[in-house]
Nucleic acid binder design. Structure first.
Lengths: 237, 237
DNA sequence: ACAGCAAGGTTGTATATACAAGAATATACC
DNA sequence: GGTATATTCTTGTATATACAACCTTGCTGT
């Protein structure tokens, strides 16, 4: 039995989802929602409050509650795959497999994976879409010694990240985040109008055996931002 | 007049702060708090709920509410100031103070700092240079209630971040990282040739009292990358 | 015409109450 | 002794109500 305030949250999210309630548009007042959903004002209020915390709505006293400008937001803390993040937002995730084959390791990738330059490694390339709109171009290199069956995976229902988590449990990761201008090929794949700034995350993941994979994740700056709670590591200690 | 639930939050925070309530120790139940603070259970509950959201407490149904381990998730990304980072690389850090004055809070900033829109807050703007080359444009808004002497600081030898760490020890931070195109003014300040992609970090920092400051840190994509080790968080939660 | 006030709608705070759900402990029973 | 069962304490959900704070709008009096 899902709680009533959850049901209301979902209903409101859907209205926004389907464009019935546009950005910056005022959503029904607490009293109006209470009547519509046959609940008390406090219950409707809770739904609104939590959506405000999630960044879906904004509100100000005396004025009303409004649909917040939309931007997808990724979490930095956990190493999670994009599919989970998207479905948690209640959106639809899909992916196109662009490439999946063995390649010779270039210098940069060889260093990242800690394998000899020129040795054979596995490469995959996927385009992740949120509600049909490209949000991530995933270019991944995998250490074949640790994941020999990588090329046999379909990657239709399961993302590479999910598969790797199963066969080689991750213990550590190193991230490098930067703002870059996309190449023309990348622009086309991400359906960008021009050379709009992109957020690139380079991620090396380790299992107990060594470096498992090296991934470059490219996100359009206008459709993706990375957010998270971080505890302060005090500099004095 | 500060709301009652805020007062209760502060009282609880103080108990934890001063070590009266240790980590993992159970805090008084909602009913007990209601009696102690002469309020209804719902009000005490709200205080607890918000502290849970802030990560100060953890709770579970049927068991009780407990003081959260202070650094629960291991090492995330340290919040360090740019000056330290640069000098650690063996380079020379310098900074230009561009602006330091009280301003009226715009909507976005007011929300970030949790102050009424239009109220007076402190703003500072600095340009950080590494070996004479601009690497960070720091635009910072500070809550005057928590840091009343902010405008009296020189910020020549000490960065705003260092000063704030002293006067209001940080307990938590929220980060938002995105790739953006710099405005023309920002291009000029950062000595950029054209609209090169920039990495923007929006950082809200909290002390036990509330939101201390909101900073927008803009870095040229070609001269700055963000890196860090991340421990994998177990997927079970 | 215009300043000022009043009214109504909105979110924000606070309270009292009731019952549901989860977890530990005590108790009764076999 | 071991296993159910009941009790009790905890948090979680839901409602009804009251008033405060804030904003907009429209009206009113000069």
């Amino acid at each position: 039995m899902i709680p009533k305030f959850e049901a209301i949250k979902q209903a409101i999210s859907e209205e926004i989802e389907q464009g019935h309630w546009q950005e910056h548009e005022q959503v029904p007042s607490e009293n109006a929602l209470a009547e519509r959903f046959a609940c008390s004002r406090m219950t409707a209020r809770r739904a609104l409050t939590e959506l405000v915390e999630q960044g879906v709505l904004v509100r100000s006293q005396g004025l009303g509650t409004f649909v917040a400008p939309f931007k997808s937001q990724g979490s930095m803390m956990a190493i999670r795959n994009i599919a989970e993040e998207i479905s948690e937002r209640g959106h639809q995730h899909s992916a196109q497999l662009l490439l999946l084959k063995p390649v010779a390791a270039e210098a940069e990738v060889a260093i990242a994976l800690a394998v000899p330059a020129g040795s054979t490694i596995f490469r995959s390339s996927l385009l992740h879409l949120e509600n049909g709109q490209p949000v991530q171009l995933e270019d991944r290199y995998v250490n074949p010694a640790l994941v020999p069956d990588y090329l046999e995976q379909p990657f239709s229902s399961q993302t590479p990240h999910e598969y790797l988590s199963q066969v080689a449990p991750l213990t550590q990761a190193h991230h490098l985040i930067e703002a870059v201008a996309p190449s023309e090929v990348q622009q086309r794949l991400l359906s960008l109008e021009g050379p709009e700034p992109c957020l690139q995350i380079c991620r090396r993941t380790w299992s107990s055996q060594g470096v498992v994979s090296y991934a470059r994740l490219l996100h359009p700056g206008s459709r993706f931002r990375l957010g998270g709670h971080l505890m302060v590591e005090s500099t004095s200690r």
